[in-house]
Each structure stands twice: as structure tokens, then as C-alpha cells.
């Protein structure tokens, strides 16, 4: 049993209900708080809200981690190349040649042809990507987290802004502005595809600040998330 009875003022001052749901109270503190909220409707009500928010936080964190999964990463399991004699679910690449068969003189040429084809394919892909990036601008180079949500920063003398491409099925866009060290400066929920924030509201000119935009549907599920995009574009060379 707790040695000292709590009162509401102490619970409030020490954020007991918040720390209780976070598991941050000592065993004695937690027990004292439990004894208190059994008889206190006010503190029980505060604890109920804290539980609600704590559970919603877990949900929020889970959906954030799902949405942070690279596009296509969960679409299909990776192919497994198992060595001979090792069980596995993926296809097995067997390197041993059939014994007793006649040596094939064209075999070495076949590998050379395959290597040349792979090289041609790689060079072609690289050239295509390079040309494509030049056409669509630098933002597309940031593609990776969500190919269909591109953020374009826009800066004015007294404000920072950004626009982004609409996402199909999005009910709202959750817009965040972070400092370079990851501190959240602002967070907004918008139906529009543009945001503007007074520089004074974020402490002047946060050099190294980044935008992050997440599209959510009507059930608050994440549909797409942009890459972190510099709020102040680097000067052109």
C-alpha cells in the first residue's frame, strides 16, 4: 500500500496520469495514483483521456512506420537464393554442372554475352533516368518514399511555403516543418495542397528546415508521404 495519499493538485503538478500510461512512474507512485483514482472522478477522467491519447499514439506510430516502408518493399517477398542442400522457400540457384556430360565450348561465350547484355541494360537505364530527371526537375530526384507526392518549397521574404501534388483518395494532408536536427516546428492538417507559414512563427529563418507532407484518407490512414524537402531551396550554382 502507498505510504502517502495523493491529492489532485499533486497529481496535476506531476503529470501523474501522463506518466502512468507511459509507464514512467515508480512502483510506489503508480500504486499511490491507483489508490487515488479509484476514489477520484476528476483524476480518473483525466486518466481516461490519457489512455485514449496513449492508445491513439501507438496507432499513430504504427501507421507512421508502415507508411515509412519504401514503396513496393512489402509487395512481394524477396527472392531467396539458397545454396544447394539448404532448405528454403525461394528458388535455388544451383552452380554445379551436370556430371558426365560433354563439355560445351560455347558456355564461356554465353557468360560473356550475358555480362555484355547486363552492362548495356545498366547503361541504358542510367541514361534514361538521367534524361528523365533533367526533364522533370530536381524534386523528382527525391523520389523514393512516395513517388506520387512531391513537395515544392516556395520562399518569400516573410514566409515559408510549399506546394505539393494532390494524392488520389486523400482527405487531408498532414504537413510538418522540421529543423535540421528533427525538431518539429509546426504541424498542420490541411485539405489544400499548399501551405504558408510566417517566418516569425517559426523563429525567423530556420536554415536547414525541411518539409514533410503526408496524405491521409478519411480514416486517417496514411496514403503517401513525401521525402523530407528543404524548406529553403539551395541557391542555384
Amino acid at each position: 500500500m502507498a505510504d502517502q495519499a495523493l491529492d489532485c493538485a499533486h497529481v496535476d503538478e506531476e503529470d501523474y496520469e501522463v506518466r502512468y500510461v507511459q509507464g514512467a512512474l515508480s512502483a510506489e507512485e503508480a500504486e499511490a495514483f491507483e489508490e487515488h483514482y479509484f476514489g477520484c472522478d476528476r483524476c480518473w477522467s483525466a486518466l481516461e483521456r490519457a489512455l485514449d491519447l496513449h492508445a491513439a499514439r501507438e496507432e499513430h506510430a504504427a501507421s507512421a512506420s508502415v507508411s515509412a516502408t519504401p514503396t513496393g518493399a512489402s509487395a512481394s517477398p524477396p527472392l531467396t537464393v539458397a545454396p544447394p542442400g539448404v532448405g528454403g522457400t525461394g528458388p535455388t540457384l544451383r552452380l554445379s554442372s551436370r556430371s558426365g556430360t560433354r563439355p560445351r565450348p560455347w558456355a564461356s561465350h554465353w557468360w560473356q554475352a550475358a555480362a555484355a547484355a547486363a552492362l548495356i541494360l545498366m547503361v541504358g537505364t542510367w541514361r534514361w533516368q538521367r534524361g528523365h530527371a533533367a526533364l522533370v526537375g530536381p524534386i523528382d530526384a527525391e523520389r523514393g518514399t512516395a513517388a506520387d507526392l512531391h513537395v515544392r518549397p516556395s520562399t518569400r521574404r516573410d514566409s515559408l511555403g510549399a506546394t505539393w501534388s494532390p494524392v488520389r483518395g486523400a482527405e487531408e494532408y498532414r504537413v510538418r516543418l522540421f529543423t535540421a536536427d528533427g525538431t518539429l516546428l509546426i504541424e498542420r492538417e490541411l485539405k489544400d495542397t499548399a501551405v504558408s507559414v510566417a517566418r516569425a512563427a517559426v523563429g525567423g529563418v530556420p536554415s536547414g528546415a525541411f518539409w514533410s507532407v503526408e496524405a491521409v484518407d478519411a480514416t486517417r490512414r496514411s496514403l503517401a508521404r513525401s521525402r523530407l524537402t528543404p524548406a529553403v531551396p539551395p541557391p542555384s550554382p
Binding site: D52, L53, A55, A56, E58, E59, H60, T219, R220
Partner: peptide, 8 residues
């Protein structure tokens, strides 16, 4: 789950 959604 419904409550979590409502809270969010």
C-alpha cells in the same frame, strides 16, 4: 480500435 480512430 474504434475508439482509437475516434480519438485521432
Amino acid at each position: 480500435e474504434e475508439r482509437k480512430l475516434a480519438v485521432r
